[in-house]
Design a protein around this nucleic acid. Structure first.
Length: 499
RNA sequence: GGCCCCGUCGUCUAGCCAGGUCCAGGACACAUGCCUUUCACGCAUGCAACACGGGUUCGAAUCCCGUCGGGGUCACCA
């Protein structure tokens, strides 16, 4: 039998990285076993704009390279893949369970249940709904009156349910701990524990891999599978993703706080930052999963080859952006120049550093030279702005710290004047010649190379850090360098602290 | 509160199921040094953990019990 896994996002438009990881584990398991991965949209309680939100989610999966064999856009033989379009299936299943006596009509009122819950709360015990004994006549009368009813599953008492979870191991759960749960609301809409089991059964899902918050929910679902006479899928509950540096679960309520700390929790934020899909994929796979305790870098193909559920950790993993960033650097080293140029363009455009919509040939050539000069310093595509902005502008903003450290020193303005002359005279104005000229200058003037190179770097680029100086001088060009030196000298003169 | 899951360096983890080879291995981060015109890369070194307490055993990170801590669930949410 072919292994089939699924991921069922609700169409909010956002993909939490924890969710992406769950989807990834499902996808990896399916691909490892040459099985199928299914996408099912969990829109049972959503209203409008679902399509738009779904598109965003699909785009996210496409970006990171998770493809689906059945689901939105691609269809499949066990559709529809929107739960909102599967109402008939749920209705039929519910009717069967009423017929077989597993499910009954519950005419209880909101007020009655609220009272029971309050009592349970007071007595510090769990609230569990149990079937109220009512006569057939009474039920018939209620129905004739048009009194609304929910459909509830009658949980069999005194049984011990055993789940053979592929990650958590054997977990036992007493049915006495489970209240009679609602499967269909009075308005006919199904509830998660019911719809999910019905769908998994109908779609012939063989492995349900999901977040561990569903572990307890699995037991009512087990009962539904059994009542339906459906074959039971295997279950694997993966631990949650905790906040960086903590064991506490990431919380939606703390989003603003994370934002402040620079912690990114949504997939689109990583895309916007210019991360590489292969790096995020690698990172997410290693978060809670390991191969041999040694290997850190995995390509997509290696992940598919080596991923197994028994290597998934049973305890929570906390999100580690430092590790992601390192992996990002590792993967960026493997990216060809052409793709780097493509990756960097949107960021330059956003900053208004390119003339038009698409870069001209000469702009592309310039970007290419900048990227080559940047080398390994470019970790994410957005780094082009932080590290290389000065290549694309006429004027430069001098970094105060760099100015203080390299320019506000005795004799620097005078030296800059001499270096300006040197740049003016160096012929040809190329890397090798410039390098020799600056070396000769340092030697002749009795200065250490660092005392010449660093001020010159700050004067011509505005920054204390960056690519090799001669790369910068050449790419920025003679005239622009000289204008910037003039600007630097003017700035130093004005403040009068150049002595 | 009942029930369920989880607890190895700051972090990701190996080791745990089949107790000794583990005074606990790898990686990120951090620190130091080398390379070097800065930064980044690279190389080297260092710092750093079996949550706690009992028990079983010749021997426990590994098995058992308890405590503490984290998480989930107990909805006509998903």
């Amino acid at each position: 039998m072919t292994l089939r896994t699924r991921f069922a996002p609700s169409p909010t438009g956002f993909l939490h990285i924890g969710g992406v990881r769950t989807a990834l584990f499902n996808w990896l398991l399916a691909r490892h076993h040459a099985g199928q991965f299914i996408l099912r949209i969990d829109d049972t309680d959503q209203q409008r704009h679902v399509e738009d939100a779904v598109q965003k989610i699909l785009d996210g999966f496409r970006w990171i390279g998770i493809d689906w064999d059945e689901g939105p856009e691609v269809g499949g033989s066990s559709g529809p893949y929107y739960q909102s379009q599967r109402q008939d299936l749920y209705r039929q299943a519910a009717a069967r369970l009423v017929e077989s006596g597993h499910v009954y009509k519950d005419f209880s009122t909101e007020a009655e249940r609220a009272a029971d819950k309050a009592a349970a709360e007071r007595e510090k015990r769990a609230y569990r709904f149990r079937r109220q004994p009512i006569t057939d006549e009474q039920a018939a009368q209620y129905e004739a009156e048009g009194r609304p009813f929910a459909l509830r599953f009658q949980v069999p008492p005194g049984r011990k349910l055993v789940l053979h979870d592929l990650i958590k191991g054997n977990v036992e759960f007493a049915t006495d701990e489970i209240g009679d749960f609602v499967i269909v609301r009075p308005d006919g809409s199904p509830l998660y524990n019911f719809a999910s089991a019905v769908d998994d059964a109908a779609m012939k899902i063989t492995h349900v891999v999901r977040a561990e918050e569903h572990l307890s929910n699995t037991f009512p679902q087990l009962l539904v599978f059994e009542a339906l006479g459906a074959e039971l899928p295997a279950f694997a509950h993966i631990p949650y993703v905790a906040e960086p540096g903590s064991r506490s679960k990431m919380s939606k309520r703390k989003l603003a706080e994370y934002e402040k700390l620079g912690i990114l929790v949504y997939l689109h934020q990583y895309i916007e930052k210019g991360y590489l899909p292969e790096a995020l994929l690698n990172y997410l796979a290693r978060l809670g999963w390991s191969f041999d305790g040694e290997q850190e870098v995995f390509s997509r193909a290696e992940l598919i080859e080596k991923f197994t559920l028994d290597r998934v950790n049973s305890s929570p993993a906390s999100h580690d952006q430092d590790k992601l960033f390192w992996l990002e650097g590792e993967w960026m080293k493997t990216v060809r120049l052409e793709r780097k140029v493509e990756g960097v363009v949107p960021f330059l455009r956003r900053e208004g550093l390119l003339a038009g919509e698409t870069p001209t040939d000469s702009e592309r050539a310039l970007i290419g030279r900048v990227i080559e000069a940047l080398g390994d310093r470019l970790k994410t595509f957005s780094d082009i702005i932080k590290l290389g902005r000065f290549f694309f502008t006429e004027d430069v903003t001098f970094d105060p710290d760099a100015v203080k450290k390299r320019l506000r020193k005795d004799g620097v303005p005078a030296m800059l004047a001499e270096l300006d002359t040197l740049l003016a005279r160096t012929e040809p104005y190329d890397l090798a010649t410039l390098e020799k000229a600056v070396h000769d200058y340092a030697e002749k003037s009795g200065r250490k190379m660092g005392d010449v190179v660093n001020p010159l770097r700050v004067a011509t680029t505005g920054q204390g850090v960056g690519p090799g100086l001669y790369d910068c001088l050449v790419i920025v060009g003679r005239d622009r360098c000289r204008r910037r030196i003039a600007a630097a000298r003017a700035m130093l003169g004005e403040s009068g602290s150049a002595t």
